[in-house]
Computed example of a mutant assay.
Amino acid sequence: MTDKAASHPELSLIVCLYYEEECVEEFVAQVRAALKDQAITYEIVFVDDGSQDRTVPLVLEMAERDDRIKLIQLSRNHGKEAAITAGITYARGEHMIMMDPDLQDPPEAIMDFYRKAQEGYDLVFGVRKTREDSLSTRLFSKLFWTFLNRLTGLDIPENLSVMRIFNRQFASEFLKYAERLRFIEGIFMLVGMRRTSMAVAHHKRFAGVSKFNVKKRIALALKAITSFSDKPIHLAIGTGIWLLSISLGYGLWAVIRKVFFNVALTGWTSLFVSILFVGSIQIILLGIIGNYVGRIYSEVKARPVFTVFRAINIDPDEEFGDEREGCVNRRG
């Protein structure tokens, strides 16, 4: 058992887990090696987001031997955005650094981020020098960030890494954002304050496969756009006006041909195609509007962002401040 870590260490590592039994022990080993000779106190705050493999037992074993290792076990799978919020809620460090356990972002870069933050920045984003992802993943990422920035005006850095560091003041401001359906990168940009970015190497996963599949990527894209932009609503209005203009013009043209040239339009093909086209557009536009209405429905219920099943190596007297109460529901 190590000496008890300070209740407010200099650095908190916030690491979200979801079926990471193949990576979590190696991640801890590499973090310990990277920080072994550094004069800095730290803790590792693991947030398990509903894993059903050996991820939690492995973390519990390590937490028994080292009280710098914390575990926040959520009651079910809430999604990574909620898990990150839980980690920030429970972390006690003066600086907090977000990482994934798959070792794509190298632990040896931790001190580089810490030293960069010491230059006076509240937030330091990691930007990947290169990407070791598949071609389809890189293409989706490129399209996603370009489209999102144009719709929202957030100016989020391209090739953004999960790895980033921020101070306690930034974390406190972040936790004041109470939306239940959240897009973390967007909220980080809204918080503002002094921020910069730095390049970080991107490696292949140590083991396993990414749980962030195409379906989850699309869901995140829709969440991000509807959370930070009302331009799809304006697009719906513009499309409606455009279709109205076409229909009026087409009707006027048909009247002119009949009255002045005695030529009547015949055939069902054009009518069928027109009805199908307009009907499809209407369904799409209703879907856009329904998405926003659904977000309103979810927000007005004001449910907690996450529910905690149990917290290991967490001081119950220092769990969270008043600004965090709306985010969490304790179950154990």
Rank of each mutant, 00 (worst) to 15 (best):
V191H: 05
P316E: 09
F144A: 14
K80M: 11
K211I: 05
L243S: 04
L243F: 10
F206T: 06
R194Y: 00
G326L: 07
D317R: 15
F277Y: 01
H203V: 06
F277I: 08
F140Q: 06
T146D: 02
S227H: 13
G208L: 10
I184C: 07
K142A: 13
D49S: 08
A5W: 05
I237T: 03
M193Q: 13
S280D: 01
A219P: 01
V273K: 04
E108C: 12
G186E: 00
E325W: 01
E325Q: 11
T152N: 05
I296S: 07
I14V: 15
G294S: 12
V56G: 03
I40L: 15
G294N: 12
S229D: 09
K142P: 02
S270W: 12
T137P: 01
D322H: 03
L71C: 14
A86F: 02
A5Y: 10
I218E: 02
G279P: 01
T266K: 14
A63Y: 12
R150G: 00
R324Q: 12
A311K: 12
I40F: 05
I110A: 07
I110F: 08
R32I: 07
R128N: 04
V31L: 11
G50D: 08
N167T: 08
I110L: 14
D105H: 09
F183K: 00
T89M: 10
K216P: 10
A109K: 15
F260C: 13
W253R: 14
I84Q: 00
